[in-house]
Design a protein around this nucleic acid. Sequence first.
RNA 1: GCGUUCUUGGUGAAGCGGUUAACACACCUGACUGUGACUCAGGCAUGCAUGGGUUCGAUCCCCAUAGAGCGCCCCA
Length: 433
Amino acid sequence: MIQKPKGTYDVYGEKGSTILYIENVLRALMDRYNYEYVRTPHFESSELFHRAVGETTDIVTKETYDFLDRGERKMTLRPEGTAGVIRSFIENKMYARDILPVKTWYYGPMYRYERPQAGRFREFYQFGVEVFGSESAMADAEVISIPVHLYKILGLKNVKVKINSLGDTASREKYREALIQHFEPHIGELCGDCKERFKKNPLRILDCKIDHDLEVMKSAPKTIDYLNEESKKHFEEVQKYLKAMNIEYEINPKIVRGLDYYTHTVFEVEAAVEGFGAQNVLCGGGRYNNLVKNIGDKDVAGVGFALGMERLLTALEYEHIAFGSSALDVYVVPFEDTKEEALALVQFLRLNGFKVDTDYMNKNMKANFKQADKMHASFVVLLGSEEVKTGILTVKNNHTKEEYKIEKEELIAFLDEKLVEDCHCEECECDNE
RNA sequence: GCGUUCUUGGUGAAGCGGUUAACACACCUGACUGUGACUCAGGCAUGCAUGGGUUCGAUCCCCAUAGAGCGCCCCA
């Protein structure tokens, strides 16, 4: 038996409906925010990610899918979306647009060679936005508002927005040094991982799950104390705009993000769901005023965020939120000698806009009614030789079990009327609210 | 990359070193060749992730491999 590769998954059934629903929500949402869709290749020159993500992060040193193409070019399956979008922004000279900022969104599969665990796969889907060309804190606030809005639409409660500021390059560097000075005398007290982090990426020490109770951790310097005037002002403005939009947030000085391209605002949205496990961060992002320059020598500010679909789906599952496919309008029961007429009727109804299905398995009557129930059919139409002969159809309301004799010409009008009348659901598009 | 738990039909699962691998749900057939919830009678894993080994005999014990879950590293 051939199995799917480790860390991948198939989508089918109810999960498929949920994903399609969310994707539609994303599309509509981004249209409302006036963001444009950008699609970039799933693989890029390896160098792009090395420049974007930074050589020190593990993402690039050991977690990417790298390969040589037949022309011996080093290629990498994209481990995240930002780098490709920036490359596209520069290559297509979007910075020269007549309308700035350029507000973009993307959605698609990303690849990381990691050990799979809850809500984490080797091929995973990310949705994200990138806004280029604005240094205004308004852009930061708008970007933060998008996932908040999305989670609200999806009905996800108990989400928490956590923000922090790393400041501009100068502030950030000053802070980094302060952090090193702070931890250096106590390095012996830290766990093994933190000793490693101290050398590679001291900011990440703040994220440690083992050492977080240590005195030296609690007394660690905070990023916001090292912001220069300009950075401080920017951070205050972000908060001002968030308040203006009624978005609740808390400042968490320990949010530093893993990637070293961030400047100023960084944020995460967490799901406070019981039993959700270690992977409770639903999305993260921030401002990256130097990244475009690093990649393409154009000094353009940027701010963005990304969210993982798999983790979002897990969170929805925990909250018992599902978006199943809609119920069938009509189930047609064919008989041995009326298959052609049945299929013709099915097609006729479909052409008139109804959601219709029938039996393809030569089921008996009992099994057919069972199947109609399983498909949540509103109406069952029996089509035997008698109905074919007389042109008068037997139509049964599958909820009330009432039976009607309807002429074929009247069927569409009958269904139109009855379907609206009977509809009690909250989600469908009918006008019967 | 490290640690740890696990893998038995379509599903939930019981099981013990020894002849037919429980039970339930689902599904199929018939009683009931045109009306569904009940009932009754049948059917439904030559096989217990895969490959080796120990044994007279392995779903069960041992080893390896693969996959899944959880935690760590890392991280949207």
